[in-house]
């Protein structure tokens, strides 16, 4: 019992930042990402004894996070009396977070503009395309891992990723 609790604590410590990051990129809402991250680990804790290790703990947690996010938006659509406005930050604000590195001011500005364009493209993706895109290009996950986390086949993941990239390319070319 104690060993399981310790094991779960180490899983939380190891993967909490990644789950938060994925949810932050998906929602662009810091408070919502924090809340969903807490719910994700609460749910994981309740079901920890049922985790059989068929996939990695991170993939399992990512799957819970994806479902929680999906449920959140579904509930939000049903709760039409609530204010529809979210606390999501603007696209420009989201693209401000760029390490300067060893670039000139001009290069930094250009990079920031391109990041804003990628955010713009991400905004236009379907929920599935966005999830697949973020797991691939922000979380560096392999297609197999993405398929396990989303419950889709690898072929479907590839198709979603390809469509997402088409939109990103179009945005960076300056046309829709």
């Amino acid at each position: 019992m104690k060993a399981a609790a310790e094991e779960f604590s180490s899983v939380v410590e190891a993967h909490r930042p990644q789950i938060f990051r994925f949810l932050l990129a998906s929602t662009r809402d810091v408070d919502l990402a924090e809340t969903l991250t807490q719910e994700c680990f609460l749910k994981a804790h309740r079901n920890w004894d049922r985790f059989r290790g068929d996939s990695s703990a991170l993939t399992w947690l990512m799957r819970i996070a994806i479902n929680l996010e999906k449920d959140h938006w579904r509930n939000r659509r049903l709760q039409f009396w609530r204010r529809t406005q979210t606390n999501a930050v603007e696209l420009d604000e989201a693209s401000d977070w760029l390490p300067s590195g060893e670039r000139s001011v001009e290069q930094q500005m250009m990079a920031r503009e391109q990041v804003a364009q990628v955010w713009q493209a991400v905004e236009g993706l379907s929920a599935r395309q966005r999830t697949v895109f973020l797991l691939r290009y922000v979380e560096d996950q392999e297609l197999r891992e993405i398929a396990q986390a989303t419950g889709l086949s690898e072929g479907t993941v590839k198709a979603h990723l390809s469509r997402a990239l088409v939109k990103v390319r179009a945005e960076l070319r300056g046309k829709r």
């Binding site: 693209s95 990041v115 990628v118 955010w119 960076l172």
Partner: peptide, 28 residues
């Protein structure tokens, strides 16, 4: 153009990581 796409995706990744780290370490 391919190089531009690749760089944009790398920058996007770095941007999200930096934002997430900053928000994660901030007391809430």
């Amino acid at each position: 153009f391919e190089a531009k796409i690749e760089q944009a995706l790398k920058d996007f990744r770095s941007s999200v990581h930096a934002w997430s780290e900053a928000e994660y370490s901030r007391p809430r």
